[in-house]
């Protein structure tokens, strides 16, 4: 199986503090991977380096074998990144925003337009397609950002806290969409503070603390590692992070 994301000694410092410290990780294609960690653990910094938004101080991130620093265009072509606070164009309509995103990724109009319609309908935004984005609620904006991430059919989607601001029905819908995307052989990498989401959806889980990978594997492997054979992901997570802090 091909490797969707490979991190090789990825490092980022802010002043004297190492936000990400020689991180090594391999995520095979066709799975949903959850990256967990306490606040300030380095999750967002890692994802921003993977998406090419931040330059690493050293090390490398490869998406489907393409280095994000050496071959950024090729690497980004297969990638979508959804930040925790999605920034959208306030004065555009949802379809116009998706049109712009498709333009950036070079998706032909014949393919992009029906896809954009389908996504807006699927995410319940079709009824508000005549409204400017600035009038949207937090949840609606999050849904539109998700549509923008899916619209160019990326093989790897990176989502930073994708369920923030979504109601229960919308969260369920998004989880289903992520599941379907993975079922088609694509890769989803997400961070979340909701352990239940990671526990139910992720095939593999990585736990990061103080910029270092504390543990990585399936839920069963993590249970064994933490010594909590019947523990929930929450208790496993807390035990592993606490052990490193000690």
């Amino acid at each position: 199986m091909a490797i969707a994301l490979e991190l090789v000694a990825l490092t980022k410092r802010y002043g004297s503090q190492r936000a990400v410290d020689s991180l090594n990780l391999q995520i095979p294609e066709g799975m949903l991977y959850a990256l967990l960690g306490p606040n300030g653990a380095g999750k967002t910094t890692t994802l921003r380096m993977v998406a090419g938004l931040l330059a690493p101080d050293s090390g490398e991130a490869r998406i489907l074998g393409r280095s994000i620093t050496r071959e950024p265009a090729a690497a980004k072509q297969t990638l979508a990144y959804l930040p925790d606070e999605p920034l959208l164009y306030s004065k555009l309509l949802p379809m116009e925003h998706l049109e712009f995103v498709c333009g950036l990724w070079g998706v032909p109009a014949s393919e992009a337009e029906p896809r954009a319609r389908e996504l807006l309908k699927q995410l319940g935004l079709w009824e508000v397609r005549g409204q400017l984005i600035e009038t949207f609620s937090r949840g609606m904006k999050q849904k539109l950002a998700l549509a923008a991430a899916f619209v160019h059919r990326p093989r790897v989607i990176i989502l930073d806290e994708p369920l923030t601001g979504l109601d229960a029905a919308a969260a369920r819908l998004v989880k289903d969409m992520l599941g379907e995307h993975v079922a088609r052989g694509n890769t989803v990498i997400l961070t979340t503070h909701i352990m239940e989401v990671a526990e139910r959806l992720a095939q593999r889980i990585g736990i990061i603390n103080r910029g270092r990978l504390v543990a990585e594997g399936t839920l069963e492997q993590l249970r064994l590692r933490s010594g909590e054979a019947d523990g929930t992901l929450e208790s496993v997570f807390l035990e592993l992070v606490d052990r490193q802090d000690r």
Partner: peptide, 24 residues
Amino acid sequence: RRRSGEPRWHGDFGRAVLLKEWRL
């Protein structure tokens, strides 16, 4: 006020960027 939510789709990268800037 609601606008027509189905603008003419241009797709082409250059026009998409120019249109976006002018619409904003």
